[in-house]
């Protein structure tokens, strides 16, 4: 491990290559660069999640902690690890103070693994506009998490307005297990659904699951509130008069019930943020299914047809935030 205090981006690059030579690692096998935007208070949790994801996908992990952009002096501290606490790959944790925090890309760009895809993950509340953050502009995949926003459903709406192919959200990743359960429950059916209810707390995952079911099945999907930590159940009224219900069982399973048939138990293990992130890293192409679910959930359209690249919009959080009229929604 190397720790550099009050350093420059250039020193970080040479320290990384020195560290790599010392540990005898070659960077040819790196599949991607994972760039994590995180606040100081969330660093521990983000490190844990990124380490878990890096164990599955060896990557160069760049963690960017922006601190006090209003500080008078700019400063960069960096910590370099190879094959250590932060997984089998290479990791650089950077803390940026003062105005440097607004120019994080100047440090990060030379550290990206050559020609490997870049994934940027906001480990806290999603940005208002991805284009405000240069670390999101150069990324091939952008991962946000609406569930961390003060109002998750409004945040999801924001994501739809700001969407570009290559964006995804961990609220969507949380629905994968439920979607898999629904799909396998529908495999043996020879009838169709006439009405669908998704039951759970009013969050982005419920909205996306309902959006996906509505889009795929072509029926109205009602969302019903229930307490709990995530989706509780999905119910389908079928054309043959029976009801199919997939509900959360004990902590690790779901129960599949259909009128006139014995209940069946299916695995539904809990997943941590690291597992979700690992799932995101498995595919690096735009997720059209997510775009469709997001369209349905937010009443937007044409998301997949939007341009894939963004242009950076200068935004200074220390100045008075002025709304961008072109991107304001009603």
């Amino acid at each position: 491990m190397t720790t550099l205090w009050d350093t420059t981006g250039r020193d970080v690059v040479s320290a990384l290559s020195a560290e790599r030579r010392r540990s005898g690692v070659v960077s040819t096998g790196l599949a991607l660069t994972l760039c994590v935007v995180v606040e100081e208070k969330d660093v521990g949790a983000a490190e844990q999640a990124a380490t878990r994801a890096a164990a599955e996908h060896p990557c160069r992990l760049l963690m960017v902690v922006r601190r006090r952009p209003d500080a008078a002096e700019s400063r960069l501290d960096a910590e370099l690890l190879i094959g250590g606490r932060l997984g089998p790959g290479e990791a650089v944790v950077m803390r940026m103070y003062g105005r440097l925090a607004l120019h994080a890309e100047s440090v990060v760009l030379p550290l990206l693994a050559p020609d490997a895809p870049v994934v940027t993950w906001w480990a806290g509340a999603p940005p208002d506009l991805v284009a405000h953050d240069p670390l999101g502009v150069f990324a091939d995949r952008r991962v946000t998490d609406c569930s961390l926003a003060a109002d998750p459903v409004a945040a999801l709406r924001r994501r739809a307005d700001d969407y570009a192919p290559g964006d995804t959200d961990l609220a969507w990743t949380r629905s994968t297990q439920w979607r898999a359960l629904c799909a396998s429950a529908f495999d043996p059916l020879d009838t169709r659904a006439t009405a669908v209810r998704v039951i759970g707390p009013p969050d982005a995952t419920r909205a996306l699951l309902a959006g996906w079911l509505g889009r795929r099945l072509g029926v109205e999907v009602a969302e019903k509130d229930a307490a709990g930590d995530g989706v509780e159940a999905a119910e389908f009224d079928l054309a043959d008069g029976t009801v199919l219900r997939i509900g959360r069982g004990d902590g690790r399973s779901a129960v599949l019930a259909r009128t006139g048939q014995p209940d069946r138990s299916m695995p539904l293990p809990p997943r941590e943020v690291g597992d979700l992130l690992a799932e995101e890293l498995r595919r690096l192409d735009p997720d059209d299914t997510y775009a469709e679910a997001l369209e349905q959930a937010t009443g937007t359209s044409g998301l997949s047809a939007r341009p894939r690249t963004r242009t950076h919009i200068w935004h200074d959080p220390t100045a008075d935030p002025s709304p961008d009229p072109a991107l304001t929604t009603t």
């Binding site: 994968t176 979607r179 020879d190 059209d288």
Partner: peptide, 20 residues
């Protein structure tokens, strides 16, 4: 009747065999 919830573009969902 094909399953409306299956879509080849949706590559997150695992392929699960028919009941057997």
């Amino acid at each position: 009747m094909s399953n409306p919830l299956r879509d080849p573009r949706d590559r997150r969902l695992p392929r699960v065999p028919d009941p057997c």
